[in-house]
């Protein structure tokens, strides 16, 4: 996922850079409110944790290994604001010091790996918490699904950027299908690992899971008894569901959406004009099996991501305000239990 320099065109790099800078700016401001002068050591060391976790292999299948991406994990443990900043710093340092991901590609790499995963993942997490029981089991489950979905959102975001910034002729729907397909599988691993990790923290120090700061601590005391099998089953189900939705859109045969378009005559107009003046990269639209349909898919995906990230941003800002009032003057001698003597 660490795209190198020149992978997308310059315009896309600049535009995503501006979006990333804006979102991380909001994250920074909220993080400062949340952590005050503890920001530097706490966020810094948490960033080291996420970075280290990315180097830590876990088993996938038949002895092969994968690693965490950690965007949703950071957002759930630290809150969306601190989480997004922390992951952004990881991505920036990886590019600058480790040459992992291009420096001129930081705009889209930060957007996909930090902004979309942290804010989008957090929005999904909080959304699921409304539906699920507000117990440890519910939180673990919501964390897992949110983390899995965040990886798919990230892949979708990349596909959308491809639509605007392609540098070689692979059409949008091929990229979209491949990216989402692969990341559905990666997402299962990310979900399982994130859910279990959040569960472990919840069992040891529930007060450190910022994503559940407003939940009743007593209700969270149930030992998350969710079995590994149940988890994988749920992950596979969600993946299957997403795959079905995506393949519905990407299928070459006319489906409901296209029928509507054709019946209403939008299709004709769209086919003639959709691409004429659009800012899309020729490479991403060249050879599309069905232009208007692909653009409808892209549009829907764009709306979904924007809504998710927007919801995450709103949650971060609202949370920051609430916290700022609640913890005023508390942080000086706050929860720092600096060792037991």
């Amino acid at each position: 996922m660490h795209a190198p320099d020149g992978f997308l065109n310059a315009g896309t790099a600049v535009a995503t850079g501006a979006i990333s800078a804006g979102a991380i700016g909001v994250g920074l401001r909220q993080a400062r409110e949340q952590l005050a002068d503890r920001q530097v050591p706490l966020a810094g060391i948490s960033a080291a944790f996420i970075f280290a976790a990315q180097m830590f292999n876990f088993p996938v299948a038949a002895g092969t290994t994968g690693h965490l991406l950690g965007g949703a994990l950071a957002a759930i443990l630290l809150g969306p604001a601190v989480g997004s900043v922390v992951v952004a710093v990881v991505v920036i340092v990886q590019a600058l010091l480790f040459a992992d991901g291009g420096v001129s590609a930081l705009g889209y790499n930060v957007l996909n790996m930090a902004v979309v995963t942290a804010f989008g993942g957090y929005a999904v997490f909080r959304g699921l918490l409304r539906l699920l029981p507000r117990t440890a089991t519910g939180v673990v489950f919501a964390s897992g699904i949110a983390a899995g979905v965040s990886v798919v959102l990230s892949a979708t975001a990349f596909s959308l950027e491809w639509l605007f910034g392609a540098t070689f002729p692979v059409p949008f729907d091929t990229v979209f299908g491949a990216m989402v397909g692969v990341h559905l599988l990666i997402g299962i691993g990310e979900g399982v690992l994130t859910g279990l990790t959040v569960g472990a923290v919840l069992a040891a120090r529930p007060d450190l899971v910022a994503g559940v700061h407003d939940l009743d601590r007593v209700a969270l005391r149930d030992r998350a008894s969710i079995g590994m099998r149940g988890f994988l089953l749920a992950g596979a189900l969600v993946a299957l569901l997403l795959a079905t939705v995506v393949s519905q859109f990407a299928a070459p045969a006319p489906d409901g959406l296209e029928r509507v378009a054709e019946d209403t005559g939008i299709a004709e107009v769209a086919r003639d004009h959709a691409l004429a003046d659009a800012p899309f990269a020729d490479y991403a639209t060249h050879g599309l099996r069905n232009e208007s349909l692909s653009l409808a898919v892209a549009g829907t995906a764009g709306v979904v991501i924007t809504l998710a990230v927007g919801a995450g941003l709103v949650a971060a800002v609202r949370r920051g305000r609430g916290r700022g009032r609640a913890s005023e003057g508390e942080h000086e001698h706050g929860p720092a239990r600096a060792g037991v003597g």
């Binding site: 001698h333 720092a336 600096a338 060792g339 037991v340 003597g341």
Partner: peptide, 18 residues
């Protein structure tokens, strides 16, 4: 012994704990 309060006391000496 561990947990007796020694470190906690130390953190009172410069006002990190109040």
């Amino acid at each position: 012994p561990n947990g007796a309060g020694k470190t906690t006391f130390a953190l009172h000496l410069n006002g990190i704990h109040v």
